[in-house]
Design a protein around this nucleic acid. Structure first.
Lengths: 351, 351
DNA sequence: ATCGTTAACTTCATCGATCAACTGGAGGTT
DNA sequence: AACCTCCAGTTGATCGATGAAGTTAACGAT
């Protein structure tokens, strides 16, 4: 009987007060278009009736604004949350987006073999942040046509982006290791595969053929290679981008006769795993073996990891700003990188 | 001239194919209501015209479903991302929510002193996950009236929840420390304040008056107290729930004449800070001083922290299920806790 | 006295999709 | 032959709000 048969809408308020629906709408979104007395009266009545402001759906449909910024994860959500890099990026992004009164919607990108996922197409968003390249460009294209602004973390001709110079990051590491006299070097790269750890001698083509080529990965290795002419460069593929996977991959290159004198992990999470693997074998990082990471996440810095710093949180903030503000002047941005030398690297052992 | 004046909608498709809009709609959401030939034809045409599926706004308005689950953060987003607990919870939540084809929307709860934030009211969500209690119940109430399902991480008469028995968690720790012979104990509690570290002798009332009473905090201390009759229990308030804050708070209780023999941090992140503070003073956890945390996060487990384990990711998953499935039978769930004894606790030193 | 302007509202059309109810025909029943 | 059912669609109303374009009345300027 006394059930709530109809929801409270602007119409309810309008009828009760004898004003038009538009006026009620204005009370919320354009306060200067009506007398403040009436506005107060409307808001008071709203509170009385339990009306909690304009419905997002109606508003979104009519005005086309949702005040939501999508964040597209590659692979599973779990992978995103297991890497401090993603988390810090997300933190910066949220912070910036919040300033515009918007929120962040986490979207899972379908894996390459999944059928097109409706989750992304169905998202009600004003802008979409796309992480490291991910096959399904057609979905993104469709969203773009619908007026969704796209912001990427890698250069792209059509969209806005905020990135770092990954090749330079690689070169910084290469130069550092060259100066320390390292010649036998292993690279740990994430591969997103279930297979066993795979180790092979580096060449650009071979790397591309083994992993879904992610620009940030190939660029980093390329830069590294550039500054290490004549070095013996191996690549070990890690199952995914986690500490444990880094540990396993490192094990594969450490447990051989002529182990490398330096190990470069393409991200700090992997580098932490390398550290674990080294410690377990009684090797002291920086003395018996050099370890370098990328991204300079706090956990690694804390241990004394030599790493290429990038302003991750600032990157997130900038991305958020680009996403929410179509008038922000600079729309394709490269942030600086810097090698932070700590205790995990040292001269190559002389044996 | 050739600008895109009108977006491609279902109407566009319907006109082009000479069918009704409803049929186009059905092609997407009710495939069994039309012949598969026609459906294929519609989808093909959609691809041709660059139509990317039903607009979320229209769909949300008419059907009332958004396929979005809100997650309300207390305090700033930054605090949420700085605690592995939140992140693991979020990971589990996302994973579960995804199964229902939905996504997670991150919402920042306004601080107590901010004016009501529209972000929350404007959110287009089917369900809302509310973390540790947060003042603005009226906003939540309004959403509830609009049909948004509320799921909490703490017991609540009106809503669904998934929680742990915090008092029991406290008792487990208390019992453990009692058995080890500890009598001088300090508790590190997060306070969300900018003031200096504050240390005082424990009593339920005093604790409540110092911090915004969060049930999980007060319950944990209460349980602890229960199993430590006659012990000298101090409380030190940490600025917030970060490692650094834990370190500072621990410093305040360590740098005194009769320092406690055991320190209980109300969360593992804080406990890590305590560990740092102890190490800096040359104290070995488990021998010179015992340290206990809660939540059993990987970083702490890795170091050997004694902690009360709770299935955080599963908690997130369950919360997601409750949020997305109104028919899930059990709607108020208490998950088990378990004390994991590691190297950070040991017998109280005899001096 | 007339015109222009502004404040404070109202009217009307519309955003894009979905639901409830209905239709025409093919096929099966009794 | 009359009746029922199911399939494959159609029609029309509607979700809740907002932008564009009026409409008043009051006021000041000329």
């Amino acid at each position: 009987m006394g059930e709530k048969l109809t929801a409270v809408t602007m119409k309810t308020l309008a009828n009760k007060l004898g004003v038009s629906v538009t006026t009620v709408s204005n009370a919320y979104s354009k306060p200067d278009r009506l007398s403040s007395e009436l506005r107060d009266q409307i808001l008071a009545t709203a509170k009385d009736l339990g009306y909690c402001g304009p419905s997002a759906a109606g508003r979104a449909l009519r005005s086309g604004k949702t005040d939501v910024c999508g964040f597209l994860f590659r692979g599973g959500i779990s992978s995103a949350f297991s890497d401090p890099y993603s988390i810090m990026l997300l933190a910066g992004l949220s912070e910036a987006v919040e300033v515009y009164g918007a929120s962040v919607l986490l979207l899972r990108a379908p894996a390459a073999d999944e059928e097109d996922n409706q989750v992304v197409r169905r998202a009600a968003i004003d802008a979409l942040v796309v992480g490291p390249t991910y096959g399904q460009e057609s979905e993104i294209e469709a969203l773009r046509q619908r007026g969704v602004r796209i912001v990427r973390t890698e250069p792209s001709p059509e969209d806005d982006w905020v990135t770092i110079n990954d090749a330079k990051a690689g070169r910084l590491v290469g130069k550092h290791l060259a100066q320390l006299g390292h010649h036998r070097i292993a690279v740990i790269a994430p591969a997103d595969t279930d297979e066993d750890v795979d180790v092979f001698d580096y060449s650009p083509d071979r790397l591309d053929s083994r992993i879904t080529p992610q620009p940030w990965e190939t660029e980093r290795v390329r830069g590294l290679w550039e500054k290490l002419p004549g070095a013996h460069l191996q690549v070990a593929l890690a199952r995914d981008c986690t500490r444990q996977a880094g540990r396993e991959a490192a094990a594969a290159v450490l447990d051989v006769q002529d182990r490398p004198t330096a190990i470069v992990a393409l991200s700090d999470v992997l580098a932490l795993g390398v550290w674990d693997a080294a410690s377990e074998r009684g090797l002291t990082p920086g003395r018996d073996i050099s370890i370098v990471g990328f991204d300079d996440i706090p956990d690694a810095a804390f241990l004394g990891m030599t790493s290429v710093h990038q302003p991750i949180t600032d990157k997130g903030r900038l991305i958020g700003r680009l996403a929410m503000d179509p008038d922000y002047p600079q729309r394709q941005i490269t942030l600086p990188v810097e090698l932070i030398v700590r205790s995990s690297t040292g001269p190559a052992p002389k044996n």
